[in-house]
């Protein structure tokens, strides 16, 4: 009797009249539940830890370059590993230019496809077209690269021999990237445009607006954050794309302020040189990786923020 009162007072599980067995089972279940909770928490933290670890290891391994010549690194106009001149400017310029060309081309096309799919497409075509777009988004980038070097570059060289004397270049890479991110932006745009309530759409049509007027005046303003988010996610993909770009960018490591000429991108430069690099070159390439990481991270964080805003509003 004495023991029992003590137990009652000490246990969270003991209601008056609870049997020992009941309490044992409750205790066991609580333990399992806590273990489960902790382990899911651990997995979630592991992701954060991993992100931090990547960032830290990039910083540490590129420290030699960054501490010794951070300014030269960002402004140097050439990447000459043999002379230990590591200027990231050509790669940063190439990365930004190719990605911006890609977005400039991809955005109108993707929005056009998305508008057609959501507003004008006959029901029977809607699913097949939608699935095709999603399939395009899943094609491995190396295939786009091969297509770029086999078909697109010779084609551009043939059509505009003065602008594309060698076929390859920043603009060629931008075009290939555009084709790669079109399905991506299209899929997201379509999905966010479908979040516009039918009633909003109908009330605009009910005023005698044409499709273009409805899209421009009502649908775009309603979902502009979501569509911006889609564009920025596409941009993020373009920034980091490696294989397709390496094939067609021209791989010139000197800074030329050109659009159609040859250049390089951060990802292409790393892919070309990292396997053979050691010492200072390796450290410089890792610093370059850090730059790409930061650019992409900033871009994706922006996109996430924009998408969150539309989700909050939809809710």
């Amino acid at each position: 009797m004495h023991v029992s009162t003590k137990r009652l007072a000490s246990s969270r599980f003991a209601f008056p009249g609870a049997s020992d067995k009941e309490i044992r089972i409750l205790k066991r279940n609580a333990l399992i539940d806590r273990a489960f909770e902790r382990s899911t928490q651990a997995f979630a933290l592991a992701v954060l830890l991993l992100l931090g670890a990547i960032l830290v290891s990039l910083c540490v391994s590129s420290w030699d370059t960054l501490s010794a010549h951070a300014v030269d690194f960002l402004t140097g106009d050439r990447w000459a590993a043999n002379m230990e001149m590591f200027g990231a400017l050509p790669a940063i310029y190439g990365t930004l230019v190719t990605s911006l060309i890609a977005v400039a081309i991809a955005v109108p096309v993707s929005f056009g496809i998305a508008i057609f799919l959501t507003e004008k497409c006959p029901e029977i075509l809607r699913r097949p077209l939608g699935i095709t777009v999603e399939l395009l988004a899943g094609i491995p980038s190396i295939i786009y690269g091969m297509w770029g070097v086999e078909m697109l570059a010779p084609f551009l060289n043939h059509i505009f021999p003065d602008l594309f004397p060698a076929g390859s270049g920043l603009a060629t890479a931008g075009l290939v990237l555009a084709i790669m991110i079109i399905p991506f932006i299209t899929a997201i745009s379509r999905d966010v445009m479908l979040t516009v309530p039918p009633i909003t759409r109908e009330s605009a049509y009910g005023l005698g607006c044409t499709t273009w007027e409805v899209v421009r005046g009502v649908i775009f303003p309603t979902v502009r954050h979501g569509m911006m988010g889609g564009v920025v996610l596409g941009l993020g993909r373009a920034l980091g794309e490696t294989m397709a770009v390496t094939f067609v960018i021209g791989n010139n490591l000197f800074f030329h302020p050109t659009i159609t000429g040859q250049g390089t991108s951060i990802a292409a430069l790393i892919a070309n040189q990292f396997p053979e690099a050691d010492g200072a070159q390796r450290s410089a390439l890792l610093a370059l990786g850090l730059v790409l990481f930061l650019i992409t991270f900033a871009v994706l964080a922006t996109a996430r923020y924009m998408l969150n805003r539309i989700e909050r509003r939809a809710a």
């Binding site: 990447w79 000459a80 590993a81 043999n82 390859s168 791989n251 010139n252 000197f254 040859q262 053979e276």
Partner: peptide, 17 residues
């Protein structure tokens, strides 16, 4: 200006694999 090495920075032209 350019120097020797397994990877160098070429002032002009196209890099291929």
């Amino acid at each position: 200006t350019i120097g020797e090495g397994k990877s160098v920075a070429w002032p002009a032209g196209v890099g291929a694999k």
